[in-house]
Amino acid sequence: MEETALGLWGVPLAILAGAIRVSTPFIFVSLGETLTERSGRINLGLEGTLVFGAMSAYAVAVLTQSAWLGVLAAMCAGAVFGLLHGFICKFPKVNDIAIGIAMMQFGLGLAFFLGKPFIQPVAPKLPSIPLGNWSSLPQVQAALTINVLFIVGLILTFAIAWMLKNTRIGLILRVVGDSSDAARAMGINPNTVRLLATAAGGALAAIGGAYLSLFYPGSWNERISSGQGLMAVALVIFARWNPKGCLFASLLFGGAGALGPALQSVGVTQGYYLFYAAPYVLTLIILIMTSSPTTRLSGAPEELSLTK
């Protein structure tokens, strides 16, 4: 068997590869949610946006034979979902969490309905960069074949972190997230800022969906996401609303997710199913360890209904 050439070294390598491969949608969704939550609103509907993004990316890629047009289509669809969420939440007495759940179901249902004809056809895949050609081992090559979107996600992480500190838009976003009153006193309309932040968050989340259908696993079906959009929202809290924290959390989560398959591939035949739960257990443990019954969450935007 080929795998034996690496032996147990295959496990950390598989975890690294998994971290890169699995984390990409988490990076995009959690960055998007960070933008939205930094403006003081929660969009729980990103799971629906993610799946709808996956469907629309796949469908457009099939029809145009261009994966990048697929990504663009997903972004537009995601932005529309975000705009809808933001628009509804503008009205008084509307709860953003409830609307988010409704939007999630709406996105899922619409994606399943419109996506039926695209389960069979094959779409072009997103390109990736083989960074492992220096090695003769196929596992190393496979692990280091990095998708372009992962690199985009890396750049975006640092770009958003920079933007929050060094641009007018970034400061306005933080002002709105921290104090609607202060924002109004400055003549900023918090609802408009939140609308745009939710739209941007939706567009980013939909890119995560495009990655799912156009690269890994690389096909469209109704079980494509299995709750990744929801987990990404939890990751944002774990990352304390910090873009770099989102990147770290996504990588950690992706790596933990690769533990099960990696153990299976080196011949562990019993109990590896338990390790499939590793990312969830890890998230729970970390959330419990970093929480406190007596103190407030640090870094939480004050306007978030979650923390009020």
Binding site: T167, R168, L171, D178, D181, A182, G299, P301, E302
Partner: peptide, 26 residues
């Protein structure tokens, strides 16, 4: 207080201006 608690004093002063540039040269 109407200052934004999580922003620094400098950030609070600059953002309350009308003519904040798109990219802020700190």
């Amino acid at each position: 207080f109407t200052l934004v608690p999580s922003l620094t004093g400098a950030e609070n002063l600059v953002i309350s201006r009308n003519d904040v540039p798109g990219v802020i040269s700190w």
